[in-house]
Amino acid sequence: MLAYVIRRLFATIAVMAVVAFFVFSLLYLTPGDPAAVIAGDAATSDDIKRIRANLGLDEPFLVRFGGWVWALLQGDLGVSIFTNLPVTHLIGQRVEPTLALTLCTLLVSVLVAVPLGVLAAARAGSWSDRAVMAFSVLGFSLPVFVFAYILITVFSIELRWLPVQGYRNFAENSFWDWLRHLILPSIALGTVYIALIARITRASMLDVLAQDYIRTAQAKGLAPAPVLVGHALKNAAIPIMTIIGIGIALLISGAIVTETVFAIPGIGRLTVDAILRRDYPVIQGVTLLFSAIYVVINLLVDLSYMLFDPRIRF
């Protein structure tokens, strides 16, 4: 197993190298010049030229890429062109809100979606099944920002139950204050995810429930609940885990929008801002981080297979 993990980690590095090169080239080709953004509206072409030279942006592609990789190997992601703050510092500031938001969403989604999916599968064809399925289709059909606005209008403006925007950090605020600020964003972000997981859970449960050993267990007169959870869900877990892993990328995309609407200072917002301003070092750093997270989570998902299916050995 250790060998497997090591092999996977090497593959991870390969993936990240692909991403790094891809992103760097993409940025190199992208029109848009941080020097122009820095100079402001009233600057002239000459001003911009001088700023660009100062930033080293007029060097050839390979020199810049080489320099960046070299620094990266030393753990240095560079310095934001605009704020002059280290990229690692900027990312560090933003990790907590995004982590809180995605974990909260993930947790809520799994806690809501898996039981829903199991319920729907257990009562396939019933009204409760249809209701779950209807929801799982509806969940896909509204862009997350529209849904977020509806939540704000109802719960923050009309009912005044929850705050409109912002994030409270965990360490300095009360738990409730922290949680309050996460409820609406998590619901907004989680809807698609709940729909997705509920759907997959139902499908794979149906698959498993059709298998002979479940029928045997039922025939033996085992109570429905232990059969469902103990036997069926455990065996249906692998596709569910896979989808959760793949869904992380979706979650990050969704987080960009959610963080914008709810003014949460997370990584997603940092990324969009950096792209709009062409803050190259930040974009590169963040993308690399995203791909690392994605790859690691999928590795963890793969390893978790062992938990659910002892037959799997690496």
Binding site: I246, A249, I275, F290
Partner: peptide, 15 residues
């Protein structure tokens, strides 16, 4: 894998 690990929205904005 590399392509998949870049969030689609990010990819789209860059493009």
């Amino acid at each position: 894998d590399g392509l998949m690990s870049i969030p689609p929205v990010l990819l789209a904005i860059s493009l």
